[in-house]
Computed example of a mutant assay.
Amino acid sequence: MTDLTKTPVTVITGFLGAGKTTLIRHLMQNPQGKRLAVLVNEFGTMGVDGDILKGCADDNCPADAIMELSNGCICCTVADDFIPTLERLMALPQKPDHILIETSGLALPKPLLKAFDWPAIRSRITVDGVIALADAEAVAAGRFAPDEDAVQAQRLADEGLDHDTPLAEVFEDQIACADVILLTKADLAGQDGLAAARAVIEAEAPRKLPMLAVTEGAIDPRLILGLNAAAEDDIDARPSHHDGADDHEHEDFDTIVVDLPEIDDPQALSDRIADLARTHDILRVKGHVAVQGKPMRLLVQAVGARVRHQYDRPWGDAPRISRLVVIAEHDRIDAPAIRAMLQAVPA
């Protein structure tokens, strides 16, 4: 008999560095008896998150069930990339019980939901829910959400002023599309920071949304999987700044890839990245670096001036290539200066 049950998909969205990959790793390690598959979308041509997740593959989510699209937003490449990749996941020898989609940090989730209306997959897949991650510490500090009073004052002063930065629009669209909000890095935000972040999100959300505090991606999967939201049928309740537009652009952001020699001082690199964020308004840096005398890869992850690095796994037979992806707003990215600053780290 034909199985008419649709495979549930959870879309995990959130700003750059909010903790999406960390959350998926936790879900992979706590599958609740489900066989998972993962689709990762990166902004730019070099994937890092998919490689991290493949390092966590096991019988519940094998490496061949972790697929990556790194040549553009999945909602902009539906026919060429997104649909065929979903079909490959559905055609695996052991069909997944649940699919997790990690969008890029710059993605607008609503156009992606519209993609699930394509006839090739609509009868086979349903969007179980949209989970939006928000860095509680950053939101509490007002980095990625506008101050409503200040915006109103600007509007009154200059009707022609562009009140919203691109980052604010991305943040608001992700919140508006969500079924559940996860306030990540709760340990860094503290109780006062969490309360402030909740207030900001409540002011931006088009409807009341559950908000859960999370540290290091640790959450009971039952709280975010199995929501049965059928979000593809509920698009009108998820407003967007881009409603009515034929498509959306990512020209507000740009990426460069920086190759480095082997280094001998990870902290010096970390300090240089933090300086780069402060002087060039860099949003995100991520990648792997070879450290002299160390058999392990150094995983580097930075959100603004907050930099974390750790050895994740041996290089093995893979070439010891040090490569970082740098993301910034389009009019702020100075490729020669960024490369010169990073490549000046002592080898």
Rank of each mutant, 00 (worst) to 15 (best):
E159Q: 14
Q94L: 04
K20I: 05
V285T: 13
I256D: 04
H242C: 03
D58T: 08
A153H: 08
T7K: 13
A79M: 08
Q154N: 10
A138M: 08
L299I: 03
T13K: 01
L212S: 10
I83T: 03
L212H: 14
R284A: 01
D147A: 10
I263W: 01
V325D: 00
V289D: 08
R278Q: 15
E137G: 07
R320C: 02
V289A: 07
D51E: 15
L86K: 02
V214E: 01
H250E: 15
S322A: 08
E102R: 11
I74P: 12
K6H: 10
K6Y: 09
A318Y: 12
R88W: 00
R143S: 13
T5Y: 05
R278C: 12
L156P: 08
D58V: 10
G33E: 11
L69F: 03
T103K: 02
K34W: 06
Q310F: 10
P239W: 09
L100W: 01
D252L: 01
Q343G: 10
I224Y: 00
A205S: 15
M296V: 03
G160D: 15
A195D: 14
G287V: 14
P146I: 09
V285F: 02
A237Y: 04
A305N: 13
L53A: 07
P31T: 11
D59W: 09
P111K: 08
H288S: 04
A335F: 00
G190I: 05
A140R: 03
P109K: 06
E172F: 08
A335G: 03
M46E: 14
L188C: 09
M211A: 08
T13H: 00
I121E: 09
D164Q: 11
R35C: 01
C177M: 09
V289C: 09
D135F: 02
P146N: 05
D264I: 12
E329P: 05
D275T: 15
L100C: 05
A178Y: 04
T279Q: 15
D265A: 13
Q310P: 05
R122M: 10
L36W: 05
I74Q: 05
S70M: 02
P346D: 05
R332I: 00
L276D: 06
A196Q: 08
A199N: 06
L27D: 10
V48L: 06
L112W: 12
D3A: 00
T45N: 14
E172P: 02
L27C: 07
E172G: 11
A274Y: 11
K95N: 00
P62S: 07
R155Y: 14
N228P: 07
T13G: 13
V40G: 10
V170N: 11
A63C: 03
M46Q: 14
A115D: 02
S322D: 13
E249I: 12
A138I: 00
L156R: 15
M90N: 09
D173M: 07
M28F: 04
R313K: 14
A63V: 12
E249Y: 10
